[in-house]
């Protein structure tokens, strides 16, 4: 069992990782074909992982309902609507326009997603009013930058001399510099993590305590 659970996945990760790293440095048609072939696998695996996600969702919410944990009612709503949507697939009209899935997408999913996003605006306003305080030099800088960006990003800002120019400068110079540093840091971290996985040092993805 250890072979199947540990050795085989570690071997797959090692071979796949090394082959794909080398592929990037080999400008040969065969190398291109290897990339196309392996990437098609990735797309298929990503598609299959949606099924795993569905299984995991059902299991997590069913357990919550069974144990009557806090908020179990919401889990029941989630599973109920999930089941209803799945049933809609078996309707003669299925996913066709006017069918139950199209209807639920147009009139439930669409509207509820938009509502959720709209509500966010109110909470951001409330949070900004209650928490955005000039308590220190850093907080004051953040507050001033936020005010300039907020005004510089709308037409009314054009009536305030210098505001659009300062807003553009904030976005193009300090923000870009900070963001570039973050991107470089994340990229180096990703390379280190990828190497750790390829060479079997990082094994958390296998599950268990290791």
């Amino acid at each position: 069992m250890t072979t199947l659970k540990r050795t085989v996945p570690l071997g797959i990760a090692l071979v796949a990782g090394l082959v794909l790293i080398l592929q990037g440095f080999v400008p040969h048609p065969v190398s291109g074909k290897v990339l196309t072939w392996t990437q098609s696998w990735v797309v298929i695996i990503a598609g299959v992982s949606i099924l795993l996600g569905v299984g995991s969702l059902v299991q997590a919410h069913a357990t919550k309902i069974h144990r009557q944990s806090r908020g179990w009612f919401y889990s029941a709503v989630t599973l109920g609507t999930f089941g209803l949507t799945a049933l809609g697939f078996f309707h003669p009209k299925g996913i066709e326009p006017g069918g139950p899935l199209d209807w639920s997408y147009q009139y439930v999913m669409n509207e509820m997603s938009a509502t959720m996003f709209s509500i966010l605006g109110f909470f951001i306003a409330s949070a900004a009013f209650r928490a955005f305080r000039a308590r220190s030099v850093e907080a004051t800088l953040l507050l001033v930058a936020a005010v300039i960006i907020m005004l510089g990003q709308v037409p009314v800002g054009a009536y305030l001399p210098g505001v659009p120019q300062v807003a553009t400068w904030v976005l193009e110079v300090p923000t870009t510099a900070a963001k570039r540093a973050i991107i470089l840091g994340v990229a180096l971290g990703s390379i280190a993590t990828a190497l750790r996985i390829i060479f079997g040092i990082e094994r958390a993805y296998l599950g268990g305590s290791e």
Binding site: L35, T36, Q39, S40, V42, V43, I45, A46, G47, S49
Partner: peptide, 9 residues
């Protein structure tokens, strides 16, 4: 689905 994978393909 698959992030960068389909773009590479």
């Amino acid at each position: 689905p698959g992030g960068t994978a389909p773009i590479l393909t």
